[in-house]
Amino acid sequence: MGSTTAITDAVKMCQKNPELWDKILDLIGRLGWNGNDNKGVYSSYNIRTLRNLYAKYADREKDMENVLLTACSGSEYYHNNLMPLAQRQRFDYLNQIISTRLENIDFLTQSKRKAKTA
């Protein structure tokens, strides 16, 4: 599928939390970012970005993954939207998408509950 260069980050993760490394590789695979030989898909830029997103959304991991899979999938998406960005920008970019979508989901859920109780 690809080649990783994030050795130091990955080994540290495997020491403290190997499940997280597993989740990150699994998510990148499902996102399909590396489908078209995009360079640096498994680089420390993306690994750190996803690690930080997992940390930020620790209580809503599945929701975060679903948002990314819905909104940010595909090698073309990665090539056009993420590849030109630096590491911090990638985090901001993806975090913006996730937080907006999660807010929308929460709003819709609350609206449905209100409608049911009314």
Binding site: M1, G2, S3, T4, V11, K12, C14, P18, W21, I28
Partner: peptide, 19 residues
């Protein structure tokens, strides 16, 4: 070393290689 073995095994599971 456990962390390196885990690193390699997880990479292998997801078909990810490394130098």
């Amino acid at each position: 070393e456990p962390e390196y073995v885990a690193f390699q095994d997880i990479c292998h599971t997801h078909n990810v290689t490394f130098l």
